[in-house]
Nucleic acid binder design. Structure first.
Lengths: 268, 268
DNA sequence: ACAGTAACGCGTATGTCATACGCAGTAAGA
DNA sequence: TCTTACTGCGTATGACATACGCGTTACTGT
C-alpha cells in the first residue's frame, strides 16, 4: 500500500545458494529493497501470481485482527489461497515479512512541520502521531526490532523528526541522539501500556480492579520492613486511583523535552 | 539463588482444573508466589526430585551461554536429567519460567543510597547498575515483559529507586512516573544497543564498517530530494564516526534527569 | 521457431516446540 | 492398612519455520 512496491524476484538467496545475493551492493534483504521500489523485473519465468504488497497487506490484516501470533506463514498463505512455500519466493524469511509489515503499518508520517515551526511543538506532534501508530497497531510492539530503520516509511518518519530539529542549532549527531531518545521513549511507553492492557483484558475484570488487586497482592508479598518506600507508595493509594490513559506519556514526553530544551537554548 | 525459594507444589492449575488456584488470595501464578518464599509444603506425595531454584538457575545458565532461543522446556529438562513434562510440576507455563529467570538474573540491587544522598546521583547510579544487569544478561531483553513487576528482586530495585527519591519532595504518583520513565529508558536503550550489537555480530564485520555500510545503503535508497534532512545527516558523517558505546545512554540519562530536576526544585 | 534457462508454485519432509492427558509409583495421614 | 495427594514421565497433538527438489512456465538468444 505504501509506495509502489515492485514485483518479486526470488527473495531468498537464489535457488541454489550462489553468491551473496546483494542486489545493488547493499546489505539489505531483497524484499526490503523491493519495498523501496527497486527490484528489476525478473522477466524470465512464469508470471508471479502474488505480489509482495498483497502478502504484506494480508499479514497486517491478520495481525490487526488476531494479533501477531496469528501471523504464520501457513496462515497468510491460506488467506491468499496459495501454498505456504510460495511465500518464500517473495520473502526470504519470516523476519523479513515482519519488517515489511512494520513499514506498511507505520505508514506515511503527517505533513511536515511548517518551516520555522517551534521544534518543541513539532516533536510533541511527532511523538503523539507515532504513539497513535503504535496504539492502532499494537502487534508491532511484539516484533523484536532488528537493526536500524531501513524501510521507506520508517525513514520518512525519521526525516520528519530531523526536519523538526532543522533550525534547532544542534549538530547532526545530537539530533540523531534526540530522535532516538524520543522514539525509544514513545515505543517503550506504548509497549508498557499495551502490556498492561493485555493483562487487564486477560483478567476479564475492570481495569481499576486489576490495578488495585495488583497493589493488594504486592502489599501482601512485599514486607513493609524490607521495602518501606514501596510500601509507602502502595499505601498512598496511587495504585487505586487511575488517571487518564495518556498521563504517563505526557509526563515522560514533557520531561524529555524539558531536558532537551537547554541544549537547544545553548546552541542558539 | 535469590531468597530461599520453597519447594514446588503443582504450579499448574491442579491436576484436573479445580477452582482458581489462587494460593492466598493473590492473582499471581503459584510459581511466582514460590519465588517470594511462600508455598506451603505439600507434605503428601513423594519427595520432589527438583526445586524451582534448580530449574530456573539452569534456564538462566543456558540463556546466558546460548541465548534465549536455546531455552526450551525440553532443553532445560535434559540439562537436569529429567523428562520435559516434569518441569510442569514446578512451573505452570514457559512464561512463568521466563518471569522467574528475569528475577534471578536481575539479582539484588546495589546497597541502598545513603540517607540524604543526592537524588540525581542516586538515580544515575541506579540506572547505570540496571544497565549493567541488562548488558550482562542480554537475553532478558528478548523476553516480552508481562505486567507490572511482581518478583522479589524486581521489587527490590523499585524500592531502591523510591528510596533515592524519598527526600525529593515529589508526591508518590510522580515518583512512580519518574521511576517508570527512567526504567523504561534504560531498558529501551539496552535493547537497541543489544540489537545493534547482534546485527554487527551477525554480519561478521567490524562495527564501524557495518555502520558505515548502513549509512551508504541508506544514502543510496533514500532520495535526498525526498529526505533532505536525513541526507544531510548521512552526509555529515555521523554514521561513520563511532563514539563510546555508552554515549547514547549518558545522553538520554542526562536529558531525562535534566527534565526531572525542575520538578524536584519546585517541590522543595 | 526452437532450445535453454530462470523463475514460478508447491508437495513433501524435517526438526523443533509447548503442552494436554493419563498412568503408575510413592509416601504421608487416616 | 488404606486412602489420597502428589510425584515423574511416556505418549500424543498440533503448530510452526523452512530446506529441498520437482514439474511447469514463459522469456531470451539463436
Amino acid at each position: 500500500m505504501a509506495d509502489g512496491r515492485g514485483g518479486p524476484g526470488n527473495a531468498g538467496e537464489g535457488d541454489k545458494g550462489g553468491g551473496e545475493g546483494r542486489g545493488a551492493g547493499g546489505f539489505l534483504p531483497p524484499s526490503v529493497e523491493a519495498a523501496w521500489g527497486l527490484r528489476e523485473r525478473p522477466s524470465k519465468g512464469p508470471k508471479p501470481g502474488l505480489t509482495l504488497d498483497r502478502i504484506v497487506d494480508t499479514a497486517v490484516r491478520v495481525a490487526a485482527a488476531e494479533g501477531l501470533d496469528a501471523v504464520s506463514m501457513g496462515r497468510i498463505a491460506k488467506e491468499l489461497g496459495v501454498s505456504t512455500m510460495s511465500l518464500y519466493r517473495y520473502v526470504g524469511a519470516k523476519r523479513e515479512l515482519y519488517i515489511l509489515m512494520q513499514d506498511v503499518a507505520t505508514g506515511a508520517p503527517p505533513p511536515l512541520p511548517a518551516p520555522g515551526a517551534d521544534w518543541r511543538e513539532a516533536l510533541e506532534q511527532w511523538a503523539g502521531a507515532m504513539r497513535e501508530v503504535y496504539h492502532r497497531n499494537l502487534w508491532m510492539l511484539r516484533i523484536p526490532l532488528s537493526g536500524p530503520p531501513a524501510t521507506p516509511n520508517t525513514v520518512a518518519w525519521w526525516e520528519w523528526a530531523m526536519v523538526a530539529l532543522a533550525d534547532s542549532g544542534l549538530d547532526e549527531g545530537t539530533k540523531v541522539s534526540v530522535v532516538m531518545l524520543l522514539g525509544g521513549f514513545v515505543r517503550n511507553e506504548a509497549l508498557m501500556m499495551a502490556d498492561l492492557a493485555a493483562v487487564i483484558a486477560a483478567s476479564g475484570d475492570a481495569p481499576e480492579e486489576v490495578l488495585s488487586r495488583y497493589g493488594q497482592t504486592l502489599r501482601r508479598l512485599a514486607d513493609p520492613e524490607r521495602f518501606p518506600a514501596v510500601a509507602r507508595m502502595l499505601d498512598s493509594g496511587v495504585m487505586d486511583e487511575q488517571d487518564e490513559p495518556d498521563h504517563e506519556f505526557r509526563f515522560g514526553l514533557e520531561r524529555i523535552l524539558d531536558g532537551i530544551a537547554p541544549l537547544v537554548e545553548a546552541a542558539k
